[in-house]
């Protein structure tokens, strides 16, 4: 199969599976809170719906950016799919993609001129300060395996066994990152409900569709990376089960915890990051 077709197929898989997982996540949360919750495909239907709605632009927006940022978001996550499941390239690039994701949160909030967006934009800076150190978990993995290529890490695991058992603290760190990225999480200060929808507040129609499209890909890729770099070569069924289990766990966590204040959110994340990094390094050395 040629590369283009593979990319296309993987993007579609990521989008559909990601949306289903997000819908499932919402369902889990609803069940935990004793509500019936929407059907699992609701998230997907939402994102498709937005592509057919009328698109309007605020008069106060900073125009090329207001539109461009959603396209950029979609492009970077498609790149993420290419680097991740398709070519199994360098983790560093995924780190970079994640950094740009934070930028998009930031600028989507600020470019509209809405006060909610502005608050979300400032909070995006806060949250980036806490989340990037968490992503530095890849440094720990590098120190152990000596490679940054996902294929290299898979090869390492097929020899030495899953990293899950060798680097439990790194797993915890990455899992915190996943919790952070999951919707309604205690750390999701950029999309807190007290600022309406955070950075997405002023994006309507097609633009919102792009954002939702990329978010589902992002969720899928994040789970995929987690399973790949900590559990080694696993089958499709393994991925499916793993993703569902993670969705259930994060759903439980998010359904039962309140949202943290921005400072506390950042400092909690950084504390976890520092403790786990130092702990993992000590474990590697010993």
């Amino acid at each position: 199969m040629n590369l283009m077709a593979q990319i296309l197929i993987n993007v579609i898989i990521a989008f559909l599976a990601g949306s289903l997982l997000l819908g499932f996540h919402r369902k889990v949360m609803a069940r935990v809170q004793l509500r019936p919750g929407p059907p699992i495909i609701q998230y997907l239907l939402h994102s498709l719906k937005f592509f057919f709605k009328e698109t309007t632009f605020p008069k106060t927006a900073s125009i090329p950016f207001y539109i461009g940022i959603t396209v950029i978001l979609a492009i970077i996550w498609v790149t993420g799919v290419i680097v991740g499941p398709v070519t199994k390239g360098s983790l560093m690039i995924l780190f970079g993609i994640y950094a740009i994701h934070k930028i998009v949160e930031h600028n989507a909030g600020s470019s509209s001129g809405s006060p909610y967006g502005k608050l979300s934009c400032v909070r995006a800076v806060f949250s980036a300060a806490g989340e990037l150190p968490l992503f530095a978990v890849i440094a720990v993995i590098f120190l152990l395996t000596g490679t940054m290529d996902i294929s290299g890490i898979i090869a390492y695991q097929s020899i030495h066994g899953p990293l899950f058992f060798q680097l439990p603290l790194a797993v915890l760190m990455f899992f915190t990152l996943i919790v952070t990225k999951s919707p309604y999480s205690p750390f999701a200060i950029t999309k807190g409900k007290e600022i309406i929808s955070g950075f997405e507040t002023e994006h309507f129609g097609m633009l919102r569709g792009y954002i939702m499209f990329s978010e589902s890909i992002a969720w899928y890729i994040l789970l995929w990376i987690f399973l790949t770099i900590f559990f080694g070569p696993i089958s499709v069924v393994g991925y499916l089960i793993g993703m569902i289990v993670i969705c259930i766990i994060t759903g439980f966590i998010n359904a039962t915890t309140p949202m943290l204040n921005p400072n506390h959110s950042v400092m909690t994340q950084i504390s976890i990051a520092v403790i786990c990094t130092v702990g993992s390094i000590i474990m590697i050395i010993i």
Binding site: P64, G113, S114
Partner: peptide
């Protein structure tokens, strides 16, 4: 993009 974009108005 920065070079060609205009700024937003905060309301």
């Amino acid at each position: 993009l920065i070079a060609i974009s205009r700024t937003e108005t905060q309301v």
